[in-house]
Design a protein around this nucleic acid. Sequence first.
DNA 1: GTGAAAGCGCTAACAT
DNA 2: ATGTTAGCGCTTTCAC
Lengths: 337, 337
Amino acid sequence: MRDRVTLADVAKVAGVNPATVSRSLNEQTENQVNKETVRRIRKIARELGYTPNTVARGLRTRKSLTIGVVIPDLTNPIFPPLVRGVDSYLLPRGYSAFVVNTDGNSETENTLINSLMERQVDGLIIATGHGGDEMLAEFHKRGLCAVMVNRESPGAPFPAVTGDDSAGIGVVIEHLAKLGHKNVLHIAGPAESSTGRLRSQAFTAQSKKHGISGKVAKTNFYSIEAGQSAMDKILENKANPFTAVVAGNDLLALGVYHSIRSHNLNIPKDISVVGFNNMPFTQDFQPPMTTVDVPHFDMGVEAARLLLSQFDSEERAPIKVTLPVSLIVRGSTGLVS
Amino acid sequence: MRDRVTLADVAKVAGVNPATVSRSLNEQTENQVNKETVRRIRKIARELGYTPNTVARGLRTRKSLTIGVVIPDLTNPIFPPLVRGVDSYLLPRGYSAFVVNTDGNSETENTLINSLMERQVDGLIIATGHGGDEMLAEFHKRGLCAVMVNRESPGAPFPAVTGDDSAGIGVVIEHLAKLGHKNVLHIAGPAESSTGRLRSQAFTAQSKKHGISGKVAKTNFYSIEAGQSAMDKILENKANPFTAVVAGNDLLALGVYHSIRSHNLNIPKDISVVGFNNMPFTQDFQPPMTTVDVPHFDMGVEAARLLLSQFDSEERAPIKVTLPVSLIVRGSTGLVS
DNA sequence: GTGAAAGCGCTAACAT
DNA sequence: ATGTTAGCGCTTTCAC
């Protein structure tokens, strides 16, 4: 890019001091300047093609108007809506979102958060939250503004916005109980994530409550592959007792679909399957997936709202916002045959 | 965030000049400083929790090490892989990507590109490219570095990375011809996008070449809804002559699925359907979708590579990189019955 | 090998 | 209502 036009350039042409140009161009301060002068300067700025340098302004004002958004992986379809939600709140308020992907890797996460800090972000929206985030705890001590979203971080008492995982699993179990299922398997998400732990705990508790024999199989990732291989292991047993599978999320459920199909079994005739998240396209799967709808866009909005509200107030209460979820019954669950 | 530790703070503690600290901490210049001093200063910096201020550095060096990525909509599943591709090339080279969503709106696009410029991005990767981008042309004149990806912009002669749209449509038509289809409908993407135009043109040309009667229906958006309503209009005609539909992309194709299903027809028995992009999850649809695989991740990588290569060289050749695509035959296409 | 000083583009305090 | 000055945190001449 060729040399950009600066405030000083505009000032020179207008024959005034750079400060006057600065005041004229800023809506907050333009009333400190003669109306006529403001008009003249604005005109000159436009003609010269002046573009303000947000970076220089940020250096001076100690505000970057930039928020870092830390997510595991953009290609997981639940995150784009969340990011759009964040954006939809931030943009009209002059902020921008800087999105990074950690791939569920703690080391990468540390590197990227550091890089966001170096870029002087005003705050962080974090959708990753593993078990041991000493780094987050450290940043919290240093006074960083952040909000956790989708997951919580035990170590760092930041405000958190989550879906109601327990209630979600609750309605799922209730649904399966009504369909007559007595032996249900939970393909749990990674134990490092709060969603993995919460859903797993809720599964065990709710199964017991409904007189269902509930067993849990663990996975290390929220991915199609992890779901498939976990289910493959189960189906290797000739005498598989399970009539229904509750997956930790939709990706795991889709992996379960693949496994069941490759074993020449039918969903839901032989085995019912339930996902979690109601991510895009679940209704177009074969069969359409019964799952729990989680309002990811709204979670993004709420997280952004919470973060900006922190900037003004001094208080740092560990607020928890839990958004309601709802069961979406489709074709992947049926009566026990 | 509480007051951060600055270079000057480190210098004070170390009893040296800030310049020495700067030189010591930068790999390029550390050899200008006494080895022992470097070691000492690095230690102090670490102990003090010093975090370099990239923004201040950028102001001084006139490089932000930030690239703006302009896409229509992150929730369209072809874009996350593309963004990850960009990231994968940029991150190891010290750059970061700043992603914005235009929602296919020219006005929004202008606003967002302006905001990226104000943030001093070193270059732009643009996946939007509508018809009349006077703004891009203007920026090009002003010496902006940018690369178009996935689509091209007629007005602005930036380098472009695209999939081979014509070849893709070619193999699709060939495939349908072999299956015996004589009457094929193209649900075209928006005419403002280069992909929409190119695929539509290729469809007409290739149909003729294979002796197929090819008709084109237009849409205004690459969306499920647009595909569904376009197909609904076609199926209202009792005497629908088409035995196959070539959709402008997978989202349109999915809309076509919905429409066909709601008219109690069967894919592919009554009508074959082909998508474009091979976006995630197309293989899990009912039926699995025959589509054209486009290497979106690689497109991102290539675009990033091209952009950074521009920074060094003075030449501004209008390079065009066309990536190969391939037909993925699945269950949504079959023989004419 | 290190220090001193200037300046990137902007805003905010203090003058006038 | 406008000008002057200083400085945000950093790098980069130019000295020594």
